[in-house]
Structures are given as structure tokens and as C-alpha cells.
Simulated scan of single mutants.
Amino acid sequence: MNLKMKKHQLKAKKREIFGKKLKGMRRKGIMPGVVFGSKFNSIAIQFDLLEFRSIYKEVGETNILEVSIESDEAYPVLVKKVQLHPLSDLPLHADFYKVDLTQKVNVNIPLVFIGESEIIKSGEGVLLELMHEVVVECLPMQIPSSFEIDVSQLKTLGDSFTLKDLKLSEGVEVKLESTELICKIVEPMKEEVEAPVITPEEVEVIKEKKEGEEGESSDEKEVKKEAKKESK
């Protein structure tokens, strides 16, 4: 399990621009967002796009970020959702969820598959990945950035990882049954040999050839037989 304790802070200002006017703001490299939370009055904010992209690469949606709004206090938040441009993938808007550092939260943690299994390398088995993230409950400062799954430990067909195999820090709880499968080594799918496809034209040719052979008299067949002998 990976934990990131580095402190990140995003400087922001209260936003008074909404709707269609946001396009002009984005052209200047300013990105809109909102801070919201339980028993918290939402605050519309704006901040530098490049600064946000740099921080977001490190914190993702599983690490605490502080949003400092002008001269107000810095709010501990999780990036809840980032809206992206459908063509350029540039961030258009971000939702920040204000957390209470003393209250547990539920967070989706990504599963990262590492290592190389010999049975997969030899082609005798393939890795069936049944999960790519898992929901955990913990305090905000205990949120892991990811869980690593070392597939080199899987040696034979049927070997698997379940949720109970995850290395959890104290205070981190998985919100699913511990017997749930994460991944498993299974047999490769056998390729089916397709029967040759015969076109209607080919069927007609075969039919005509067969009818021609059946239409020969016994005398004609005997003549052909004698001709073959003489040619030899």
C-alpha cells in the first residue's frame, strides 16, 4: 500500500463569473471549480489551470489537497470530479469535497498490477483481472494512494488474489467481503478452427463436375482408361 504524505496547496480566488462567460476565463488559463461538503456552504472558486494540472497529477482523487481561498483559511479537500474537454482532455471544471480530518470517508483506491508471472510469460496461463479499484473507509490522512498486486506470486493455474491479501494499514477498512476475487490465473482461450466457407458459385461448379462424371457411360470411362495406359 502506498501512502503520500506530501502537502499540496492550491491557491484560489472566489469566483463571480458563471455560465457562458467562463469560456473567456478559460482562454486566459483560469479554471473554474467549486468547494462543497457536508454542513458546508459551497464556494465557487477559480485558480490557475497549469498549477492545478501539476498538483492533480500527484494527488489524483485519493490524496488530501489544501485549497487556500484568498485570505481565508485553507480547506482540506479531495478532488471529487474533474470535467475534461471531449477532444483535448484539458480540465474544464473541478469539484472539491471538503473533508473533516476527524471523520472517516469512503474512497475508491486503484489497484496496480506489478511483477511478471512465469506461467503467464510461458503462455500456459493468462491473468483475469476482476477488479481495478476497491472502496476503503478511513480517516482522510490515512487514505492510501494505491494498492500494489504482485502477480509474480501467482505460479499455477487457479492461483488468485482476494481482498484479504491486500496489505492494509491500521485504520483502513475494505468495504467488501474479504473473499472477493481481485485476479486469477486461468487457461488461455483455445482458438476455434473455422470451417472453410464455400460460395454459391463454388457449390455450382462442384455440382456440375459431379453430374458430368456421373453422366459418363461405361464405354467412355473404358476409352479414357485405355488412353491413359497408352500415354504411359
Results as ranks from 00 to 15, higher is better:
residue 143 I to W: 00
residue 144 P to Y: 11
residue 144 P to D: 00
residue 145 S to N: 07
residue 145 S to F: 06
residue 145 S to M: 02
residue 145 S to I: 07
residue 148 E to P: 05
residue 149 I to L: 04
residue 151 V to L: 08
residue 152 S to M: 05
residue 153 Q to P: 06
residue 153 Q to C: 13
residue 153 Q to H: 05
residue 153 Q to D: 15
residue 157 L to N: 05
residue 158 G to Q: 04
residue 159 D to L: 02
residue 159 D to E: 08
residue 160 S to E: 02
residue 160 S to R: 07
residue 161 F to W: 01
residue 161 F to H: 01
residue 162 T to S: 10
residue 162 T to N: 07
residue 162 T to D: 10
residue 164 K to R: 09
residue 165 D to G: 08
residue 167 K to E: 15
residue 168 L to G: 02
residue 169 S to I: 11
residue 170 E to V: 02
residue 170 E to Q: 14
residue 171 G to E: 00
residue 172 V to W: 00
residue 175 K to T: 15
residue 175 K to G: 05
residue 176 L to R: 10
residue 177 E to S: 10
residue 177 E to F: 10
residue 177 E to P: 04
residue 178 S to H: 13
residue 178 S to I: 14
residue 178 S to R: 15
residue 179 T to H: 15
residue 179 T to R: 08
residue 179 T to Y: 14
residue 180 E to S: 14
residue 181 L to A: 12
residue 181 L to G: 07
residue 182 I to K: 01
residue 185 I to P: 04
residue 185 I to M: 00
residue 185 I to E: 01
residue 186 V to E: 15
residue 186 V to N: 06
residue 186 V to R: 11
residue 187 E to S: 14
residue 187 E to A: 12
residue 188 P to E: 08
residue 188 P to Q: 13
residue 190 K to P: 14
residue 190 K to Q: 08
residue 190 K to R: 11
